[in-house]
Amino acid sequence: MHQFIKDLKSTPIFWLGVFVPIVLILHWTHGASETAMFVLSLLAIIPLAGFLSHATEGVAAKTGDTVGGLLNATLGNLTELAIFITALHQGLIDLVKASIAGAVVTNSLFMLGSALLIGGLKFRVQNYNKLNAFIQSSLLFIVCIALMVPTIVAKVSVGESTVRVGKISFGIAILLLVIYLLGLLFSLKTHADFFKSEETESVDEHVWPVNISVVVLIISAVCIAIVSEIFVDGVQGAATKMGLSQAFVGFVIIPIVGAAAEMMAAFSAARKNKLDISVGIAMGSSVQIALFVAPLMVILSYFIAPAPMDLSFKGGLIFMLLFATLTVALTSNQGKSTWYLGVLLIAVYSIFGITLFFMD
């Protein structure tokens, strides 16, 4: 309990938790506009993601490496998952696709690039496990191939192309889930030594007691589900009033808000010269979104969405995913980093963001 109270006082992201009851009250009393609810719900999601992340670490610390790693992998992107499911249920399939692509690109370019920049400004050269980075970037490249195939089929096919693309997407989704599960077996069991840190120094852990973590985990998950529904309800109207395209909201805003807690952890680790942790968080989150969340959305769409979702992404999103993957693969293959590599990753991400901001 002492550590929990201490973290509440010392962690600024938790202070935003005051927006959670504000959003709920305004939603139930209809006391704010769509734009206000859109902004407030974004601010409310950030601390909820932080609570969820810390609670997951607290539970995982008591369950052993294998179960703990599986728990972290499963719940690591629960915030984005809740938003995606809500949007899918309301038929906002284009928003879901843009958010999936944006989450992968944001984590692999913006989060990783910012971590490299922050760490590089304090340490001249930082080392990390290049084998881990290579495996993660290889998985992202496989995902690019998996998404490009149905996209190309959708562009060149005629007649029953929608049905054909749907079947292809469903089959690829199953395959991606199998690859994800085998990846967990590979990284947590058979070849766990491949993913060990280059640093011999142990990582400082300030985890919450397991009973508090479980309670916080449940409350955070419920609140995230409610606030996500409020956010999705107002996203279209608010984005239009604010002059933002749905693609920009999905690709940039939702991934940054959903990954805010993970970003803070990655940046903090980089400042402590624990770059392996930063690389693991950034690239691991990207891989999880691509191999687990994306195919799961395809499967769930057959049960909760007005129409099934396929893996045919708009051409621009596919190329952004491909170029992001190639950029990460080219800049992370040495096992060494400087601040300038971070600048390069952020620059590529900024190009994508600027493009989507000025597109309808």
Rank of each mutant, 00 (worst) to 15 (best):
V257E: 02
I289S: 12
L182V: 14
I281A: 05
F51W: 09
L356T: 01
H206I: 10
M297W: 04
D310M: 01
I219R: 14
L330C: 05
A60N: 14
P255V: 03
I46D: 12
S99I: 06
F186N: 11
V249K: 04
A265K: 04
H2P: 11
R271P: 05
L317T: 04
Y349I: 05
P12Q: 06
E262R: 06
P209V: 05
L176W: 15
T106P: 06
S286E: 04
F357H: 06
I85T: 13
N132T: 12
S10C: 11
A87H: 02
M148E: 04
P150W: 04
L177W: 06
Y180Q: 00
A87C: 14
S10V: 07
N211M: 12
L356K: 01
K155S: 12
F84W: 10
K9E: 01
I142Q: 02
F170R: 02
A261F: 02
L175G: 14
V153S: 09
F186D: 11
A294W: 13
K241M: 13
M320I: 09
V214G: 08
S350Q: 11
G120I: 07
G171D: 15
I100Y: 09
F14N: 15
A44I: 04
Y180C: 04
L181S: 11
M264R: 02
W15Q: 06
G69Y: 01
L109K: 12
I281C: 07
L70V: 08
I100L: 09
G342F: 12
I135Y: 05
G120P: 08
A294C: 09
A305E: 03
Q236A: 08
E201W: 11
D193S: 15
L217V: 14
D94G: 06
E229R: 06
I118T: 14
N72P: 12
A270R: 00
V232L: 10
V158M: 06
T151S: 15
Y180G: 03
E198H: 12
S332M: 11
V104D: 13
V67K: 10
A154R: 13
D65A: 14
M264V: 09
I226Q: 04
S157W: 02
K122T: 11
G234A: 06
L40R: 00
L321N: 03
I83N: 08
T11N: 07
A247E: 01
A238C: 13
K196F: 13
M297T: 15
I5G: 15
S285W: 01
I304Y: 09
G280E: 01
A247T: 07
E262P: 14
L356G: 00
T86W: 13
T355R: 03
N107F: 04
S33P: 00
I5S: 15
G342T: 05
M359I: 01
V210K: 10
I142S: 02
I100Q: 11
S161Q: 14
I304F: 05
Y349F: 03
S220N: 09
E80M: 10
Y302A: 10
V287W: 02
G258M: 07
F170K: 13
V165W: 08
C144Y: 08
I281H: 01
